[in-house]
Design a protein around this nucleic acid. Structure first.
Length: 423
RNA sequence: GGAGAAUUGGCAGAGUGGUCGAAUGCACUAGUCUUGAAAACUAGCGUACCGCAAGGUACCGAGAGUUCGAAUCUCUCAUUCUCCGCCA
């Protein structure tokens, strides 16, 4: 979330930038500033009362030691008055604090100046594309037919065991999944990311830390008995490793990568969007996460984009990069680039990666800081990106590389699958 | 799952109702000394909020309570360790 002093000093700028998100934040920001003002005034009063109350308590202690019990008891009378006052003030203070906090949860991150205006994904701006769109033979099939034909995935079996959106990968299908994990992790490690294997369940505090809670509650699976959530992305546990941490400045940038299953309820999705591998409740993904010095985060974002490019090049998939418009930009993000691969049989662009800079928005909630040149704690910047999400990569690989002889596996990936064609 | 013990500053570790934000040691930072280093000595060394500042307030696992006053007493929860049970 945003910091109150920042809001106080940059109100007009924030309002202007949030217009890109098609949002008028004027009212909320004014309320925040007002509630914060009340909060601070109340704290001033409260601190004064507590100060004199503390002083009197100290005096009483000294008097008792000197054996002046009568005088001490007299002072006690005075303090009970102060006590009542401080209690009321404390309650008022809490009310204002909560009000500020609740209002802050409503304000999304301030988009970068390069974020274009727009209502939906249709208004995202393509900034790069590479690779020729494949021309398929006459009876080419979409991936949900191919997976059946070559026994790679059993969707119906998943429905039986769990429900829709939980496919069972079989034979070479399962092998490709394992190959993708190995390939992506090796690539990331080579690029300086440390591999971590995080928990797949997270507690409430972690949900708040990265911004899934409070507003995106319905997106995650929740186990009420233990009050734990299944992760929608490894971003959550991996970023939360640095919650309440003051990192060593010389350790920046901190780069972690994790392969994990991801779980998303995806309530309300339907139609061709969810066909086959296009949208699942459980899927695999390798995530890259960076924690950087504030002056370095935009360069880190570019670096991550360049890195993901190399992955798609090695997989020989045609792709494009779009800069998300204000209407499509995530709540916590300042700037996001999406990667889309072309899935030839569906004749569709499928989102396979989303790379974002959150600047201090998550760090503020996480309380993740470094020490500046004056040794004062300052918020870090956090970034993350998919590198990459498996299902749509798999869909594109299958559809684009299908031939009458079988499905060809790109050379780089074949090193990991152990086969270069699926027959 | 059952029983017991514990949880204090970067680490170790005192503190069991009063001037304790917290002894001491180690680590760390700066200085003195030294040709340099080590050692020794001196000083500094948590976080957040309020305040122009002086300064104030809060925090000793978390939350509630008792008290004029809580690191210290009570309750609830969490975590860690030991023993028993169970089990990849």
């Amino acid at each position: 979330m945003l910091q109150v002093p920042y809001i106080r000093e940059n109100k007009d700028l924030i309002i202007a930038r949030l217009k890109v998100r098609n949002m008028d934040a004027t009212d909320t920001l004014n309320k925040i500033i007002e509630a914060d003002k009340n909060r601070r005034e109340t704290q001033q009063k409260l601190d004064d009362v507590l100060a004199s109350s503390n002083a009197k308590a100290k005096e009483i202690g000294i008097l008792f030691k000197q054996g002046k019990g009568a005088e001490a008891n007299e002072l006690k009378q005075e303090t009970s008055q102060l006590k009542a006052t401080s209690k009321t003030l404390q309650e008022t203070f809490n009310t204002y604090s909560d009000e500020v906090k609740q209002l802050l949860y409503l304000v999304p991150n301030v988009p970068h100046e390069s974020v274009p205006e727009g209502k939906s994904d249709a208004d995202n701006v393509e900034i790069f594309s590479e690779g020729a769109l494949p021309t398929l033979h006459a009876d080419a099939q979409p991936h949900w037919e191919l997976t059946k034909k070559y026994d790679l995935i059993d969707f119906e079996l998943g429905v039986k065991i769990t429900g829709a959106g939980f496919p069972v990968y079989t034979g070479k299908g399962a092998r490709i999944q394992r190959a993708l994990a190995g390939f992506f992790l090796d690539q990331a490690t080579e690029k300086g990311y440390r591999e971590v294997q995080p928990p797949l369940l997270i507690n409430e505090a972690s949900g708040y830390g990265t911004g899934q809670l409070p507003d995106k509650e319905g997106q995650m699976y929740h186990s009420p008995v233990d009050d734990l959530y299944l992760i929608p992305t490894a971003e959550v546990p991996v970023t939360n490793m640095y919650r309440d941490v003051i990192v060593k400045t010389e350790d920046l940038p901190i780069k972690n990568t994790a392969y994990s299953q991801c779980f998303r309820r995806e309530a309300g999705s339907y139609g061709s969007d969810v066909r086959g591998l296009n949208r699942l409740h459980q899927f695999d993904k390798v995530e890259i996460v960076q924690i950087t010095h504030p002056s370095k985060s935009m360069a880190a974002l570019d670096e991550m984009v360049e890195y993901v490019k190399t992955l798609l090049q090695k997989l020989e998939l045609p792709f494009r990069i779009v800069r998300l418009c204000g209407g499509d930009l995530g709540f916590t993000s300042v700037l996001t680039y999406d990667f889309e691969v072309y899935s030839a049989a569906q004749e569709k662009w499928l989102e396979v990666s989303s790379i974002s800079n959150f600047e201090t928005f998550q760090a503020n909630r996480l309380k993740c800081r470094y020490r500046d040149e004056n040794n004062k704690p300052q918020l870090v910047h956090t970034l993350n990106g998919s590198a990459l999400a498996f299902p749509r990569i798999l869909a594109a690989l299958l559809e684009n590389n299908q031939t009458p002889e079988g499905i060809k596996i790109p050379k780089e990936l074949a090193k990991y699958t152990g086969f270069d064609i699926i027959k």
